[in-house]
Each structure stands twice: as structure tokens, then as C-alpha cells.
Design a protein around this nucleic acid. Structure first.
Lengths: 345, 345
DNA sequence: TTGTAAGCGTTATCAG
DNA sequence: CTGATAACGCTTACAA
């Protein structure tokens, strides 16, 4: 019998000889309801096999209990950790999540935002695509006062919150670490400077150089998408530099660093003796490459949790937007062999 | 003005002097609607800024246009690729997806199934947790004739479809490849035999041994969770084997293989000369480890797409369950240096 | 503390 | 091909 009829609050009401209103209230812990009747309602609900109809509820209450999430890609270690954290937190609070990926394209990101809007999410979490230039596509949300929280790849905007790490400081520390290990010509593999993560990492790198009386050399900046190919390309570039090779490389992510290392090693470059390396993200591959890659660790899981939690708090009117505008999470420098030129130190 | 009122089909109807029914039909390409009025409806909808209310629709039509997905973990390369494929396919067909993770625990999987049921998904896609013993928790779905499709880690059940690769054959080919490369004592790192993927890979391994007149040695079977620690543990075990060491290892996933290799290399074992290696999954780490790991590649993305597509076809009554019961996707052996004992061949 | 009654925006049904 | 009307199951003023 595939179509036993669904139990509604009316069935429970009839069963208990009370009104549907009371059942509705009892089911959601309304303050003004007798403890006793509440218990009776819950028991009857379980007994009759009641399951609430979220559609009727959403239709009436205009809240969907759904959070939209837009990420550049689903299948990176970092992002999938973020999503794991979000799923966990949302689930705990009885929220659904809808995930969509922009595939690093601003255009697709706009389409996704539009879809999320039409799906009437209660709030939106977004990490921007590689080439997104502005956030006009989120305007409809701001207009309707639907909260938007950016995470990791954020956009400074007075009406939205952000969850990030201090990329500037982390990059400063990485660069300083390379300098402390004897590097004097440090190359930087960077990403699109439109994105705060890459711009800030670049700034931190530059600041560290200046603070140590080294000047920034444009020839030692290689901007790319930081993927496999970019890493290999960077290596080829380095190999062509002759005696002007860098003696250290700070990459804005681990992928580019690792593929760069592989190519250089193949060409006989010794790491870290000839060129020291440091990356960013603590991707699993950083622990596989030999020598293991020095990198910056920050928890995607925690970032996901933090984003969801503050969104839900916001929806519940707990935190107020104006006071909490940015949440900055911890990050740690993880020192591994790829950067230890003088192990004696 | 955060609360401009929403446009409904009634507004469109009034605007065009037709009935809401006609608008409703026009909006969803109902066959019996005049092409002209249809166009007028669409134009008016766009013009007025109409967005459909899925809750009202779900409430009335009893279809949620939502697909539930239960995976062991979100943050593995393979799974996040699967999800990327699912998201894409679902999006194309205008379906939402709700994702939850069992974290490899049967208990959490049951809770997730229950949640999905309460959220009234139109269909369910599931890949089983490490220790799930039966699928009683999916009974409510079968009872209500809500389609359930298992993927990768499947469960044979007459009422549900499966999307998999031929793990048996793939494992056979890997093992044969190791044998062809001169291995005579091949160790197998396996997972929980409750899961088809691990059971089938084991079977394929065993069959290949027998076909080549090598007998299966229980001492060369190491069953674990196939994670980092398990890989290291397997290496320690091997190192203690003295002159009874294997000369080849076939691991049921890349993670265990890679961490096993790292530990062995550290102890001075040469790969592939002393011990050849092959894994499974073509995880990014398999291309980073040195020597690169021979492995079996199969596309998570394709698997995700296939699962969603057939679920939606099923929901639309296109494919019939009884005829299509299992979809088997392609997999390829990717030969890399870790298994080439005699490169001269 | 509980109940009554009126919708929320759509689609199914039946009727033309 | 188009319309009128009645639900779908819940929430929320308002009333008691």
C-alpha cells in the first residue's frame, strides 16, 4: 500500500480531542502551552507516525529553513571540508542546505545566486569565483534583507558578514619563516588579486620582504590560477631563470607549490637546498610530496561551522549584524622539510 | 523596502485577463495551452518579476523536486567529485539536492535516512557507511515507493537500483598486472567485506591469483579502514615479515597504499624493485607520491551524474526499474611507475 | 492556556 | 484550449 495517507496535525488533534492550533503550538514548544498537553501531543505524534509538512509550514510562515551555499568548486579538499562543517552545523539546527558550484566562473555564480533567490533560501553563504568582479548579483538579497555571509573568498560590503582567516598575517609569517631560513630571493606564486585571499597573501609576502630590507622584485611574482598546470608552468619559468633563480618559493596554495616542486625535482633542483618551498592550505598532498611541504593550516570544517552558526544566529536575531561584521578564524604555520634549508638551526 | 509583496500567478492572471489555472499551466508547458497565451504568460511573468513558490507547489502536488543524498563523507576527493556530478545533473533538471553524511557510521546513516524521509525527498541516493549491516532503515522508502538508488557502496535489493563499476574485474586486472610484472607474493590491503566494493576487489584479487596458479595466503591479507593510520600499520606489519615479505601490494584504495609506501620508503624498501604497489581510485595523491602510484581510475563525477539522471528518469516514469537494475560504469587501469618492476618489458 | 477561522500560492478536478 | 472551485497542511490574528 504505497499510499497510506499522511498524518496531519488535524489527525493528532482529533485523536486527543483538542484543536489543531494547540497541536501546532505544542509541536514547536510554544511558551504558552501546558506541559502536560505538550507531552500528550508528542506521544500521539510519534504513535501515529506523524511527520511535519515543511511545505505547508514554509508556505504559511514564509521561512524555508533552507540555507543556500555557493562555492567555487565542490571537489577540493578545502571546500569539501567547509561543506562538511556546514552540513553538520545546519543539521544540528534543523536547517537544510542547498549547494551549488560556480566552477570559478562569475557568470555561473550569477546564475546560481539567481536560483538561490528563487528557491527562497532564508540566508546565503558564498565564497566567490575566481573572476567575480562585483556583487551586484547579490543585490536582490540585500534588498529583501536576506542575510548573506561570505566566507574565505569574501567581498567587503556593509550589509554582509564575513568569515575568514588573517591571510595577510599568515602570509607574512610564511615569508618571514623562509627569510629566517636563509632565503634572499623569494618568488611568489599568486592568484587573482581580485580575491582577498590572494591579494592579502601577496600583501603579507611583500610586507615581510620590506620589513627585512629585501625589495620586491616583479620578476619574482607569478600570477595564475594556481592549478596543476600553473605549478608546472612556474617551474619551467624558474628553470629558465639561469643564475637569477629564486632560492625560495611561497605559493598561495599547495597545489601549485607541489606541482612546481615535482617539475623542479625532475630537473634536478634540490629542495630545500637550492629552493625552499612553502604553500598554503595544508592539503593532503602537502604531506605526500617529498620533502613534505611547509604550509598554512586552517580548518575548512571550522570555517563552515562558523559561517552557518552565525547565519542562523542572525536569522534568529541573536547576533546583530552591525556589531559582528567579520569573524576571523585561527590559522597555523606548519613547518615541514621543504623550507628547512639549515636544519642545524 | 524589504517587503514588496510577491507576485503570484493571480497577479499574472489579472494582468492578462485570464485565469490563474491557465497561468499555472502555461508556466509549466502544459500540452494543451495555446502557444500564444503561453508566450504572453512568460513575458508577463518576467516583466512582473514573478518567482514561483515551490512550497505552495509541493504542498499541492506532493512532489518536492528534491533529491536526498547520503554519503559516508563529504570530504574525500572521490565523494566530492560524485557530488559535483550530482549537483550538475540535478541542477540541469531543476531538482534540489539535500546532502548528509553518515561519517561512516551505520547509526548516523539511519538517522540521516530518517531525516530524508521526513523531508519528503522525491528520491534517495545513498552510498553505504563502512559498517552498515542491513538496510532496514530504508524500508520506509520502499514502502512508500520512493525510489532509492545506491551508488558505489551498494546493497543488493530487489526494489532499488545501483550504479557501480565492476570492482571484481578491475581488481582482477590490477592483480594480473602485478603478476605480469613479476610479483609472486602479493599482499592485499582490503576494507570491510560487508561493502561490495571491498568484497569484490578482494574476489578479483583472489581470482587472479588462482588463475595464475598462485595460492591465496591469509597472512597476506590485511583488513582495515584503509586510512592513513592503516597504511602505516600495514607497512609496519610488512617490515616485520622478514624474508616472508610480499613483493607486491594491491591496496583497495590509494590512501592506504600511499601511506604504506611512505613508511616503507622511510625504512629503505625500494619501490617497485623490492615491493611493487597498486592502489584504487586515482586520488590526486597517487600522482604526487614517488614513484607515482598505479591505480584504477573511475569517474566520481560520471557516477554522480548517472545516479541522478536515472533517478530522475525513474521519477518521470521513463526507465522502468525492473529492466534497468544496475548501471555499470567504466573503469581503467592506470599504470604508473610504482608497479613497473621490469621497465624493460 | 486553548480554540476559531482565514488564508499562504499552487494544482487537481471537473466542467465547459 | 480555458475556467471555477476546492483542497493541500500549516500558522496566526483574534477571541474566549
Amino acid at each position: 500500500m504505497p499510499n497510506e495517507k499522511e498524518i496531519t496535525i488535524y489527525d493528532i488533534a482529533k485523536h486527543l480531542n483538542i484543536s489543531a492550533t494547540t497541536v501546532s503550538r505544542g509541536l514547536k514548544d510554544h511558551p504558552s502551552i501546558n506541559k502536560n498537553t505538550r507531552k500528550k501531543i508528542f506521544d500521539a505524534a510519534r504513535h501515529l507516525g506523524y511527520r511535519s509538512n515543511t511545505f505547508a509550514s514554509s508556505l504559511r510562515s514564509k521561512r524555508t529553513h533552507t540555507i543556500g551555499i555557493i562555492v567555487p568548486r565542490l571537489n577540493s579538499y578545502f571546500m569539501s571540508s567547509v561543506l562538511a562543517g556546514m552540513e553538520d552545523a545546519a543539521n544540528r539546527e534543523n536547517y537544510n542546505i542547498i549547494i551549488s558550484q560556480s566552477l570559478e566562473s562569475a557568470e555561473k555564480e550569477m546564475a546560481n545566486a539567481h536560483t538561490m533567490y528563487n528557491k527562497r533560501v532564508d540566508g546565503l553563504l558564498a565564497s566567490l569565483a575566481y573572476d567575480t568582479e562585483n556583487i551586484d548579483h547579490f543585490e536582490p538579497f540585500f534588498k529583501k534583507e536576506i542575510p548573506v555571509i561570505f566566507f574565505d573568498r569574501i567581498y567587503d560590503h556593509k550589509e554582509s558578514m564575513s568569515v575568514v582567516i588573517d591571510n595577510n598575517k599568515a602570509a607574512y609569517d610564511v615569508t618571514k619563516h623562509l627569510i629566517d631560513n636563509g632565503c634572499r630571493r623569494i618568488m611568489h606564486l599568486g592568484g587573482n588579486m581580485l580575491r582577498n585571499v590572494y591579494a592579502d597573501r601577496f600583501k603579507g609576502y611583500k610586507k615581510a620582504l620590506l620589513d627585512h630590507k629585501m625589495k620586491f622584485d616583479e620578476k619574482l611574482l607569478f600570477i595564475s590560477k594556481l592549478n596543476e598546470e600553473a605549478g608546472t608552468e612556474a617551474a619551467n619559468l624558474i628553470l629558465k631563470m639561469g643564475n637569477k633563480k629564486p632560492d625560495g618559493v611561497f605559493s598561495a596554495n599547495d597545489t601549485a607549490a607541489v606541482y612546481c616542486m615535482l617539475k623542479l625535482k625532475e630537473a634536478g633542483v634540490r629542495i630545500p637546498e637550492d629552493i625552499a618551498f612553502a604553500g598554503f592550505n595544508n592539503d593532503p598532498i602537502s604531506k605526500i610530496i617529498e620533502p613534505n611541504l611547509t604550509t598554512v593550516n586552517y580548518s575548512g570544517y571550522d570555517m563552515g561551522e562558523a559561517a552557518v552558526t552565525s547565519l542562523i544566529n542572525h536569522l534568529n536575531g541573536i547576533s546583530n549584524v552591525k556589531s559582528t561584521n567579520t569573524i576571523i578564524l585561527r590559522s597555523d604555520l606548519i613547518i615541514r622539510d621543504s623550507s628547512l634549508k639549515n636544519k642545524s638551526l
